[in-house]
């Protein structure tokens, strides 16, 4: 079962990779076409070796990235984003820091940019920074996972396989951003309680998890597969910008060319894919 899911995710990742050429995700899932596309990519440009080298130098065709506009964000918008994300992904609200699961949450400048905190910057100090998985290019969590339950997809998304995770929590020790949560208790019990007491509705399109596994933001990979934008972008399109960092004509690259941006703990070499526009 887990293999199937994993293979599916890999194929889905590959399909997104090729997906730039146009065409829907489902069309591209046809193996023949994927192969043909790859062939095409590899030999494009005439001379064999040279073209290949160039293709390698150019790196991947897709690297998803998230831009958070700190000039557009407000407390209300941040809360809305958290609410939408946690409802799309059936994240229970435990209401205490010991058991809590967070995919996206809010914190202050001082805690978010621990390495480059500037105490004289009174503008940044007052802003609600949104935190999530950084989908690093060099993810330490994927490096330490003993079962490859967490892995980096070719499109840059750091995915988590809830069916393979053994719950050792090595990834939580390795993540320098504190982006990972562990299901200390059974999340389904809490969700049922919330459904009964608060009238919460489950998102039937996204699986609930079992206790004893790690989870985190997945850049809404399930929505990307359907050609939709991530939930947070849909909730606040003026704050959240999602796009392909590998494409220099993409929306995110255009914004990054014009705006000043920050990324967290760059000195660690993790190469985060989440940018804060300040």
């Amino acid at each position: 079962m887990s293999m199937d899911r994993r293979k599916f995710l890999k194929v889905a990742g590959l399909s997104t990779l090729i997906g730039l050429g146009g065409g829907s995700a489902f069309e591209l899932l046809r193996p023949g076409k994927v192969d043909a596309e790859m062939e095409h990519e590899g030999h494009h440009g005439g001379h064999h070796g040279e073209a290949h080298e160039k293709a390698e130098e150019a790196g991947p065709k897709t690297r998803w990235a998230m831009l958070i506009d700190m000039k557009a964000i407000t407390k209300e918008k941040a809360e809305k984003i958290i609410h939408v994300c946690h409802h799309i992904h059936n994240v229970p609200d435990w209401g205490n820091p010991k058991d809590e699961i967070k995919w996206v949450w809010e914190d202050e400048y001082e805690h978010v940019f621990t390495d480059s905190y500037n105490e004289y910057d009174e503008v940044l100090e007052k802003l609600p920074f949104l935190l999530m998985c950084n989908h690093c290019d060099e993810p330490p969590c994927a490096r330490v996972c003993p079962v490859e339950a967490t892995f980096r997809r070719p499109d840059g998304i750091v995915a988590q396989d809830y069916h393979r995770c053994i719950g050792c929590r090595f990834c939580m020790a390795a993540c320098p951003y504190g982006s990972r949560s562990f299901n200390w208790l059974d999340p389904r019990i809490k969700l049922k309680e919330e459904m009964a007491k608060k009238g919460r509705k489950l998102n039937k399109k996204f699986p609930t998890r079992m206790r004893g596994v790690v989870e985190k933001c997945n850049f809404c990979v399930e929505r990307l597969a359907e050609g939709k934008q991530p939930g947070c972008v849909e909730a606040c399109p003026d704050v959240m910008h999602f796009g392909n960092l590998a494409d220099e004509n993409s929306n995110v690259r255009k914004i990054l060319r014009e705006r000043v941006s920050l990324r967290r703990k760059l000195e660690l070499g993790t190469k985060p894919s989440v940018f804060y526009l300040v």
Partner: peptide, 26 residues
């Protein structure tokens, strides 16, 4: 101590089934 610490002990054999040489736990 490792067995009691992991969240899904019944999946412990995944470490053997999916050997991962880039992990120090392996």
């Amino acid at each position: 101590f490792i067995v009691v610490d992991i969240g899904q002990p019944m999946r412990m054999m995944n470490v053997v089934l999916h050997p991962t040489p880039h992990s120090m736990l392996f």
